[in-house]
Write a protein that binds this DNA or RNA. Structure first.
Length: 425
DNA sequence: TCTGGGGTCCTAGGACCC
DNA sequence: TCTGGGGTCCTAGGACCC
């Protein structure tokens, strides 16, 4: 049986989420900013039409914002994460196998579906169901490989005539779309690869599809070879319905204001460790290595630059926040230098083991407290319940290191006291 | 003044082993 | 004159993704 994938992608996802609970913003330009209100990470159609580019620093568009009355929001991940979960659960009801690829897109396995329903009709069904139940608009691309499904999805978004669904299972249709697609729009071809491909005469996706896969593997990499095969309808990238557990967990942030004193840094690091350990326990894993890093602003040539990191290994794998906080503080002390204006810091966990799957050294006695697991489980349960928060002591030492989020919308769907209120006339 | 955060995979090169 | 060959593991760096 031939393989068929659908890529379902939400349109202007963050901006659409913000508009869901603000009907007064219909047809108004909206942008959403990255952490610390740094740069633009999402735009509504109206904002795109004003020429606002993805990733542009916010301070550079202040004038446009003023002139056109653009609505500006800080990132509200509580809202986007919850809306995403709602969309994904609908998709899981409509397809047997679903890979949640990112917060706003998912691959569906449609192999065998054509026996029951036309692909085009299926795509329209997905669109109307998601729109009806969540208010989010999606586009659907359907093709025999993931890479082609991505391109089909782009086409569905770009050309309104498609009705938001493109069925690219037909070979001739694939070739026609590839011919009008610049090679840098192909999934897997980024800003480094594109100029190098152009230099050897490969300008469109079709040029790439018709290139010699073995030859380009020599010149570039095995990754590009796979892309070429995928463009020709030969599926090389499988659907991963069960997310693989992560091999590293990072928690890092830029600060809202530069951090200059140790207590603030200490508090921030403790917070990051806490979050990283929560993620670790959520995937039921344990880690043996922690990395802690600090850095000043690398962009500013007018002040001294300092960046450093420390690796701390635990005697044996753990998921106990207390052990990692102790390790992180030791690491931080070893790299902390006073007198700098720190911009960013973070922690990284790695060297994972499944619980109980570690062979300890013969001479190192295990000193794990038997209460550790139960304590952490209780902690996670309380913090997830929404009834309250239990935190570790290290953070209370100082509190002016947090993110800048001056334009944050309410958590409409995840906090009782943020519930939207409807006034009936 | 102001420039996100969190991941993955692949490759090359060095250390080391027999 | 001639100075092996094959393998693993680890790390750093580069590329990509959203």
């Amino acid at each position: 049986m031939t393989r068929v994938f659908a890529l379902v992608d939400c349109n202007n996802f963050y901006a659409s989420c913000e508009r869901l609970f603000r009907p007064d913003l219909k047809a108004k330009p909206i942008v959403v900013l990255s952490n610390n209100d740094g740069c633009v990470v999402a735009r509504s159609a109206e904002a795109k039409a004003l020429g606002i580019k993805m990733g542009v620093p916010f301070f550079q568009i202040q004038e446009l914002v003023r002139v056109h009355g653009i609505q500006v929001f800080s990132s509200n991940y509580a809202l986007y994460g919850d809306m995403s979960a709602r969309v994904m659960s609908l998709l899981e009801q409509m397809a047997l196998r679903v890979e949640v690829y990112s917060i706003d897109e998912a691959f569906l396995d449609l192999s065998g579906v054509s026996a029951c329903i036309e692909f085009e009709a299926f795509g329209q069904q997905v669109r109307s169901e998601v729109q009806k139940c969540t208010g989010i608009h999606v586009c659907v691309g359907i093709a025999p490989t993931k890479t082609l499904a991505k391109l089909a999805n782009h086409a569905a978004k770009r050309y309104p005539k498609t009705g938001g669904v493109v069925d690219l299972t037909d070979h001739e249709r694939q070739r026609r779309l590839l011919a009008i697609t610049p090679v840098d729009e192909v999934w897997g071809v980024g800003r480094r690869l594109a100029p190098r491909l152009n230099a050897v005469g490969i300008r469109t996706a079709l040029d790439l599809a018709d290139a010699n896969p073995k030859g380009l593997r020599q010149q570039f990499s095995v990754v590009l070879e796979r892309t070429i095969r995928e463009l020709n309808g030969i599926s090389c990238l499988e659907l991963d319905a069960v997310p693989a557990s992560k091999q590293q967990i990072v928690c890092s942030r830029s600060f809202g204001e530069r951090v200059t004193d140790y207590d603030n840094m200490h508090a921030a690091i403790c917070k990051y460790v806490e979050r990283a350990c929560e993620k670790l326990r959520a995937q039921r894993s344990t880690a043996k290595m922690l990395n802690v890093f600090v850095r000043t602003n690398p962009f500013n040539a007018n002040e001294p630059y300092y960046a450093n990191s420390a690796n701390i290994g635990l005697p044996e794998p753990s998921s106990d926040t207390r052990e990692f906080i102790e390790a992180a503080v030791r690491g931080l002390r070893s790299i902390w230098k006073p007198g700098y204006r720190y911009m960013k810091a973070g922690v990284m966990l790695s060297d994972f083991y499944e619980p109980g799957n570690f062979q300890p050294s013969l001479f190192e006695a295990t000193a794990r407290q038997p209460t550790s697991e139960a304590l952490m489980a209780t902690l996670d349960q309380i913090n997830r319940s929404g009834l309250g928060q239990v935190r570790f002591g290290g953070q209370s030492r100082a509190n002016n290191w947090t993110m800048k989020r001056q334009r944050l919308s309410p958590s409409y769907t995840t906090r009782w006291h943020h519930l939207p209120i409807v006034h009936l006339k």
